[in-house]
Lab assay of single mutants.
Amino acid sequence: MTEYKLVVVGAGGVGKSALTIQLIQNHFVDEYDPTIEDSYRKQVVIDGETCLLDILDTAGQEEYSAMRDQYMRTGEGFLCVFAINNTKSFEDIHHYREQIKRVKDSEDVPMVLVGNKCDLPSRTVDTKQAQDLARSYGIPFIETSAKTRQGVDDAFYTLVREIRKHKEKMSKDGKKKKKKSKTKCVIM
C-alpha cells in the first residue's frame, strides 16, 4: 500500500485542523484551538488504489514558523489553505509557496490551493482571484467548507493525484537520464 505524506499549511484560523478532522473523523470542530502540530493517518481508496494518507496539520501562528522547514522537508505534497473571508490569509499563500519551493529546492512541488469556509456569506476573496492565482502557479484550486464537508475529500484526493503525477514524471525523467548515460565512448 502506497503511503502519501501530505502537509496542510496556511495562516492561523483558516480551518486547516477543521478540514483535516472532517476528512479523518467526519465531524466539524467549530471551536478554535490553535494547533502546534498534529499528525493523522487514514486509509482510503483513490482511483481504485488503496493508500495510506499521513497528514500533518501544522501551526499557522507566526511564533511556530521555525518548525516549518522541518515538516516541509518531509512532506510530499501540500494543501495551501486560505479562508475566503480573510484576504490576508490569501496573500500569505505566496509566502508559504515560496518557502516550500526553497526548502524542497524545487520549482515543481505537488500543491493544491484550497479556499476554505465557502459556506460563509462574508467572502472577501473572489473565486476568480483564487483561480487566477492557482493557474499562475500551475496547481489545482478547490473551494471547501469544513463545516458542510463540501470539497473536503476532493481537496485531499486531488493532492494525492498531483503527487502521483509528480512521481510518474520524475521516474520518466530518471529513465531518460539513465538511457543517456548508457551511451559509451570508444577510443581507438
Rank of each mutant, 00 (worst) to 15 (best):
K5E: 10
L6V: 09
V8T: 15
V9K: 01
G12R: 04
V14Q: 13
L19I: 13
T20P: 01
T20K: 00
L23N: 12
I24F: 14
Q25S: 15
N26W: 11
N26R: 13
N26F: 05
F28T: 01
V29H: 06
V29I: 09
D30A: 10
I36L: 05
D38G: 00
S39E: 02
S39H: 00
Y40H: 00
R41K: 03
K42C: 08
Q43S: 13
V45I: 07
D47T: 07
G48T: 10
G48P: 08
E49D: 09
E49V: 08
C51N: 06
C51S: 08
C51P: 13
L52A: 13
L52H: 09
A59W: 00
G60H: 02
E63L: 02
Y64L: 08
A66V: 06
A66C: 12
A66R: 08
M67R: 04
Q70R: 03
M72T: 08
T74E: 15
G77L: 10
G77A: 14
F78L: 06
F78W: 06
F78P: 00
V81K: 01
F82E: 03
A83H: 14
N85S: 04
T87C: 03
S89C: 09
D92W: 15
D92H: 03
I93K: 01
H94R: 12
Q99H: 09
Q99Y: 14
D105C: 09
S106E: 11
E107G: 08
P110Q: 02
M111W: 07
M111R: 00
V112Q: 01
V112T: 04
G115K: 03
G115I: 12
G115E: 06
N116T: 15
N116C: 15
D119T: 14
D119N: 13
S122E: 09
S122M: 10
V125K: 06
V125F: 07
T127F: 05
Q131I: 06
L133M: 07
S136A: 12
G138E: 09
I142R: 13
S145V: 05
R149S: 05
G151I: 07
V152E: 13
D153I: 09
D153E: 08
T158D: 03
T158G: 07
L159F: 02
I163N: 08
I163G: 01
I163C: 03
K165I: 09
K176R: 05
K180I: 08
S181D: 10
C185W: 04
V186L: 11
M188V: 05
